[in-house]
């Protein structure tokens, strides 16, 4: 488990990370979302002991990363996957990691095969494509068979097959009881992968809930109903309006967009009005829409706002 308590990082006059408190639980995939410049990478670097917090603490299994007895056996991390010496082969990089972490060197060839880099293992890392660098980063994270995985933008640059592979991998790791903490700005990917979501904007915690609750809370239930007969449609619209707290709009195709009620509730009312239906469905807000709504006011680099004041360090 990863615990953040009041974690804060200040660069000069800018609060890059502002008083973050949350837990990342074992056995779940927790997504870490935020616009560019929100402080995700800075937070992860503090969790991993690379940056010193201005205030607060980040603990992994109750201890700061730097005080873990066998850090590579406890935590597998992938930060910038390009941060490998370009002249060093992927295998030499992992062998150096294995030696430093007290991990048998034969494990290096296992993970290289597991990530599909066996053939390129002895080539200089500088010749790798972005996708291959990402696979090398994942290999490094898996090397110590750790109980906690921290992955910063792991699907960046991966091909669709690689993206599915990462998704399956993190789901499997979580199912084995591991803690998986995964940052991304790709909403669609998170929706398929994460059980829980931590959302930050401008360094502040905006949301820390399950994926289902996040989607539900982002906007009220809504439904789409198709009524072929105009009179029946008008009657249903009046009935819905009479319920209160409901918005009804006629869509271009003649169906009604109902805000504030589920498809089940709309169906019950249609039945009471005797309206004949050709279609009825719940309209689920996508993670992307929910996220945009939540972070609309905290986007650091929104187009046309004249730029932000934070700085995402490369």
């Amino acid at each position: 488990m990863i615990s953040l308590r009041g974690l804060t990082k200040r660069y000069g006059g800018t609060l890059a990370v502002d008083d973050l408190t949350f837990d990342v639980r074992a056995g779940l995939v927790t997504g870490f979302l935020g616009p560019n410049g929100a402080g995700k990478s800075t937070t992860l670097r503090m969790v991993l002991g690379l940056d010193h917090p201005t205030r607060g603490r980040a603990l992994i299994g109750g201890r700061p990363y730097a005080e873990l007895h066998r850090p590579l056996r406890a935590v597998g991390a992938m930060l910038d996957s390009r941060a490998v010496h370009p002249a060093r082969s992927g295998r030499a990089h992992l062998v150096a990691q294995a030696r430093a972490g007290g991990i048998p060197v034969r494990r290096v060839d296992e993970v290289l095969e597991a990530v599909g880099l066996g053939a390129a293992a002895r080539r200089p890392a500088g010749t790798y494509s972005l996708g291959m660098s990402g696979r090398l980063g994942v290999a490094g994270a898996l090397l110590g068979d750790p109980a906690v995985l921290v992955l910063d933008e792991p699907v960046n640059g991966l091909d669709p097959e690689g993206v599915r592979w990462i998704r399956r991998l993190v789901r499997e790791e979580a199912a084995r009881g591991r803690t998986v903490f995964l940052s991304s700005h790709l909403m669609s990917e998170m929706e398929l992968t994460a059980d829980r979501l931590v959302v930050i904007g401008r360094g502040r915690l905006l949301s820390d809930t399950s994926m289902a609750d996040f989607l539900a809370s982002a906007s009220p239930p809504s439904a789409r109903v198709a009524v072929p007969d105009p009179e029946e449609r008008a009657a249903l619209a009046r009935g819905l309006a009479a319920l209160g707290g409901v918005s009804v709009e006629a869509a271009a195709d003649g169906s009604l967009a109902v805000g504030g009620r589920t498809a089940a509730e709309v169906g019950d009312l249609a039945h009471r009005c005797g309206a004949r239906l050709h279609g009825l469905r719940d309209v689920r807000v996508s993670l992307e829409e929910a996220y945009m709504e939540l972070t609309a006011h905290s986007v650091e680099y929104a187009a046309g706002t004249g730029g932000g004041h934070g700085e995402e360090r490369a």
């Binding site: 066998r70 850090p71 590579l72 056996r73 010496h85 002249a87 060093r88 082969s89 030499a92 990089h93 062998v95 150096a96 990691q97 030696r99 430093a100 972490g101 007290g102 991990i103 048998p104 494990r107 110590g144 068979d145």
Partner: peptide
């Protein structure tokens, strides 16, 4: 995985390997 201590000799071995893995 068998338990090896990631102590100072491991770090020295890691640095030694890194030194000679580039030209």
């Amino acid at each position: 995985l068998p338990l090896l201590s990631p102590a100072f000799p491991g770090t020295v071995g890691s640095e030694w390997g890194k030194l000679w893995s580039v030209r």
